[in-house]
Amino acid sequence: MKKIYVKVFRDFLIILFIVFALDIVFGKLCSIALHNSPDGRYYKTLYVFEHYNEDILMIGSSKAEVNFVPNVFEEELNLTCWNAGRGGQSLPYSRCIQEVSLSRHAPKILILGVNKLVLERPLNFVRMGFLKPFYWDFPPIRPFINEISTNEKYYMFSNLYAYNSTFYYLFRSYFVKGMDGENKHKGWKPKTGHMSIDLNSNYKHEIFVEPKPINKRALKEFETIIQSFKKAGTEIYVVISPDFKPANPTTTIVKLKELANEYHFELLDYSHDTTFIYKPQLFRDFGHLNTNGAYQLSNKIADKIKNYRHSKTEQKPN
């Protein structure tokens, strides 16, 4: 019987050793692939974490990534710009960007793209899995990754786990360029084509969104973003992008108006802007503008920011 236990222990150690070896080799290969990404989502995230020094920073979810065109802002405002929006993410991702980027560089302007339900929805930390490969290199993101699961901080010792299921996005940029936007687009992900809708159908009606209470955690994270950038001396513009169909004012929008007064940031709400709503030629799908729509929205936002900055300059005593 003793022999069996020794044999089992030996096998356990050998298998553990091989798994560790695979983990180290695989982790190294993935790390090389990530740090040399020619473009794509990992390149964009790494850029904002390590290199960005632009005057304007855009953060948010897919609406920010798709709807805000940095080149338009650069031309209009004569400032450099980087779009750090990321599809499928929400406030926790923006918090990570804020924590890492502010520790290195404070932008002059922050454009925070938010969803009309952002303060009501529960925070989805699981989607932050995308940032796992950056866990050890960027300590400020660790508390957010640790919230994915109870033992996440221990799992992160495994490279295989940290790079879990990443091969498609990790290696795609080596074979197909520009799937997440070309580098010259500075983080913007253009969406070509337009949504198809039966124009004869009765599609022009407002969506009713059931009012929900504010999620305290979401509110806290949002306030932290605002306070941190304010403290760094950044001008803040919070933008609610248009959807194809408008909706009734949500609890989030009402709260954002209150917060705008409290924290002195500009709230730009395009959710009922008739330039966009019910215009299928400006949308790629119900929630995202196409290239044409994104240019129009970016021009509108840039004009507004220009006017605000201009009026502020005029108000300043000589």
Binding site: I18, D23, Y161, N164, S165
Partner: peptide
Amino acid sequence: RSTSFATMIAIIIYLGVFD
């Protein structure tokens, strides 16, 4: 046998869905 077993574990860790 041992390498296959370990590789299978590695595949599960890399491709598995844990949530």
